[in-house]
């Protein structure tokens, strides 16, 4: 698509959407958001970029092939679930470490495996959707 307006607007939109996708990812679990929706928004930002500048350029912007991103995400999600093994819990039991308190209401923030799992989901969705979208765009 050779529209100057679209290309110029895309540069701005892509960055904004991608940051928003990260915001959605980090906001998840206790508030609406999370890895799945974040991954979708992140994928859309790259799709907009590839519409504006072509799939070859978009692939370059992603640096890693989307299939690898998806598989890495799967691995991260699974390993996050398997971390529970060291705590003697069953698979996928969330492990929480609260900083400055002992629950969501009182603590300042937390370090947990749930976020790591969500990052894995984010990467799976981002990689999966993009590998489909790029394949479609390169076909035509």
């Amino acid at each position: 698509m050779n529209s100057v307006i679209f290309t110029a607007a895309a540069r701005l939109l892509v960055a904004l959407m991608f940051v928003f996708s990260l915001f959605m990812l980090l906001r998840g679990h206790h508030l609406p958001g999370g890895g799945f929706i974040g991954g979708l928004i992140g994928a859309v930002s790259f799709i907009v970029y590839s519409l504006a500048c072509g799939p070859a350029e978009a692939r370059k912007a992603l640096r890693v092939s989307p299939e690898v991103i998806a598989m890495l995400g799967l691995g991260i999600a699974l390993l996050a679930g398997m971390f529970a093994f060291f705590m003697g819990d069953p698979l996928f039991t969330g492990q929480w470490y609260w900083v400055g308190g002992d629950s969501y209401e009182t603590a300042a923030f937390s370090i947990n495996t749930v976020l790591v799992f969500d990052i894995g989901v984010y990467l799976v969705v981002l990689g999966g959707i993009l590998s489909l979208a790029y394949a479609f765009e390169e076909e035509t």
Partner: peptide, 11 residues
């Protein structure tokens, strides 16, 4: 879990 992890590494 083992075949899943194998799939990731093999990929």
């Amino acid at each position: 879990a083992v075949p899943f992890l194998t799939a990731v590494v093999a990929f």
